[in-house]
Design a protein around this nucleic acid. Structure first.
Lengths: 289, 289
DNA sequence: CGCATATTTGAAATAGTTCAAGTTGAGTGG
DNA sequence: CCACTCAACTTGAACTATTTCAAATATGCG
C-alpha cells in the first residue's frame, strides 16, 4: 500500500465530481457530500449563479440532458447561441492545432461558465468535451443580453463575470509563463483547489476530473514529467495522490514553492531557494512501509 | 552595417508608434504615416473605437494628458474607474510577484483597451506603465455601463469587446504553453504584427515598443535566449531586426515554424520537422558583408 | 565623455523531453 | 473469479534546449 493510504474506487462511480477522497483513517472532514448527481445538480445551480442579486438569471437557465463522458458539447467554430453553467462534472476546452495534435486550453469545473470567450466571435473557438458525465444548464445568450439591457443588476453581474474571466485567463497564463515545472504544477493544484472551493467543495481534497496526461497537455508538460512531479510532491509530503484522488497536505509548502522565484528569467534578483523547498531526494524509501 | 540594412534612429523621435522601419533601399511600402503624435492621436481614436455602430462611445471618451515614457497609469490594486484606449504609444501591464521580481502580463498597443480585466474586481490587478510616451483617452466606466443599459448597440459592442479579450488572453496562453522558445517567439511576432495591423499599421514592419528583455519577461524567456533567437531568425532570413525595428521577412516561414509541432509534449504524433525549418547554422557568415 | 541600460556571446550546468520499457488498474467476457 | 485488454501511469537513461554565469560590447542620454 503505497503512500500509506488506500483507494476505494467503488465509491466514485455514482458521484461524478464529489470530493470522494478516501485516505485511510481520514474520513472527509466536514462537507459530507452524500448525494448523487441529481441532488448535486439541484444544489449547484444556485451556487453557480449566486451573486446575480436577483433571480433573473435563474429564470433564464434551462436544463439540458446529461452530457456523457467523452461527449462533445460544441465543436470549434460551431455557432455560439448559449452559455452553459457546469453544475456537476467537468469539461475540457481543446484546440486542434492543425496536424492532429491537441492542446487543452482550459478546464471547466462546477460553477464555471462555458462560452464566455465565444461572445466576441459569435462562434466557439474550442472543442468542448465532457471529462466525466456532466450536468449543465443552458442560458440562451440572446435572451440574456436582452434582459441585461433592461436589468442593470443583471448587466452589472454579466460584465463583472466576463471581466473576471479575463483576469482568470491572465493569471493562468502568468502561472504558466514563469518558473519551473514544479512551480507551475504547484500553482495549478492550488488554483484547482480554489476553483473547487468556489463551488462549495473542499479546496484541499480533490478528485481531479482530468488524467495526468490531460493536465500535462494543459500545462505544456509531458506525462512523464507530470508523473515525476507528483511522485516528488508525494515524497516531499506536499501532496498525497492516488490516481486522481489528491490531497494537498501542505498548503504553505505548496504556496512557497509556487511563489518563490528560482530562475533569473523570472526574477531580476537572483534569489536563493530555502533548503526546505529543495527536493530531499532521500526520504522516498523511508516513507514507504 | 550588419544584416545589410541601416538604422536611421533620428526619424523616430517624433513618431512614438509609427512603423518607422527604415531598411536600406526599402521605403515603407504603402501607408506612409507621415504625421506627428498629435495627428495620429486624432486619427487613431475613431480607429480604436470603430465598430461601436454609433457615436455614443466617441462621445463618452475624454482626452487625458500625455503619459510620459516610464510613467505609471495605475498601480496594482488602485480602484478601477476608467477604461483607457491607447491612441499612440504602448504600455505594459506588470505583476509584482512578491519578492521584487516582475513579470509582464501583457502589452497594450494602439487601439487596445486598458482595464477590461479590472471590471470584475473593481481594482486594477497590474501596474500599468507606459513603454513610450503615449496618448490615451479615458472612458468613465460607470457612465459607460449606464449608457450600455439604454443603448443595445453599445451594450452589444461592449460585451463582444470584453469577450474578445478573453479569447485573446486564451490564445496568448496557448501560444506560450506549447512548443519551444523559437515557436513561442515566432507566434508572438506574428501576433504583434496582427495587433499593429488592427490599428492600421503594417503587420510586417514593426517598431517594437518593448525591449528584448521585456519581451522575454512576457514570454518567460531570458534576455540571452531572446538575443540568440533573434540572431537565429535573422540567419534564417525569417526576420530582419535592428534594435527595435523589425521586419517579418518570411511570414510563411514564421507561420510554419509557429505551428509545426516539434515535441511530443504538445503533439501526440511524433512529427518530423521539414529541413527548411531547421537552423542551418552555417549561413550566418555568408549573410554578412 | 561617461554612466546606465540593453544586448551579445561563449561555456557549463540543468531541467525537461524523448525513447523505450515496464507496471498498474479498471473493464470485459468467459 | 479468472485471464485478457486497453489506457493511464511509472521508471530509467540518453539527449538537448534553455538557463545560468561571466564578461564583453553597444547604445542612449545628460
Amino acid at each position: 500500500m503505497r503512500y500509506r493510504f488506500t483507494a476505494r474506487p467503488e465509491t466514485q462511480a455514482q458521484r461524478p465530481s464529489a470530493p470522494a477522497l478516501v485516505l485511510a483513517g481520514r474520513p472527509s472532514p466536514s462537507r459530507a457530500v452524500g448525494c448523487g448527481a441529481c441532488r448535486l445538480a439541484r444544489e449547484c445551480l444556485p451556487t453557480a449563479l449566486k451573486g446575480t442579486g436577483n433571480e433573473m438569471l435563474e429564470r433564464l437557465a434551462l436544463q439540458t440532458p446529461l452530457l456523457e463522458k467523452g461527449a462533445t458539447l460544441h465543436q470549434c467554430d460551431s455557432p455560439f447561441e448559449n452559455l452553459y453553467v457546469v453544475q456537476v462534472g467537468a469539461l475540457k476546452g481543446v484546440t486542434q492545432d492543425h496536424g492532429g495534435s491537441e492542446h487543452i486550453a482550459r478546464f471547466y469545473l462546477p460553477g464555471e461558465i462555458v462560452g464566455l470567450n465565444a461572445i466576441g466571435r459569435g462562434r466557439f473557438s474550442l472543442n468542448i468535451v465532457a471529462l466525466e458525465t456532466s450536468a449543465l444548464c443552458r442560458i440562451p445568450y440572446g435572451t440574456l443580453e436582452q434582459h441585461a439591457g433592461t436589468n442593470p443588476t443583471l448587466l452589472h453581474w454579466l460584465l463583472r463575470r466576463i471581466s473576471a474571466e479575463i483576469l482568470d485567463e491572465q493569471e493562468t497564463r502568468m502561472a504558466f509563463a514563469s518558473g519551473n515545472a514544479a512551480q507551475v504544477l504547484a500553482r495549478t493544484l492550488i488554483d484547482l483547489g480554489q476553483r473547487f472551493a468556489r463551488a462549495g467543495l473542499s479546496s484541499t481534497r480533490l478528485r481531479l476530473p482530468m488524467t495526468r496526461c490531460e493536465l500535462g497537455s494543459h500545462l505544456g508538460l509531458t506525462p512523464e514529467t507530470m508523473s515525476r512531479l507528483f511522485r516528488r510532491f508525494a515524497r516531499q509530503r506536499l501532496v498525497a495522490a492516488v490516481r486522481r484522488e489528491i490531497e494537498l497536505l501542505d498548503m504553505d509548502g505548496l504556496r512557497r514553492l509556487a511563489t518563490h522565484r528560482v530562475t533569473r528569467a523570472h526574477a531580476r534578483h537572483p534569489g536563493s531557494m530555502p533548503p526546505s523547498l529543495q527536493d530531499p531526494g532521500t526520504t522516498y524509501a523511508a516513507s514507504r512501509a
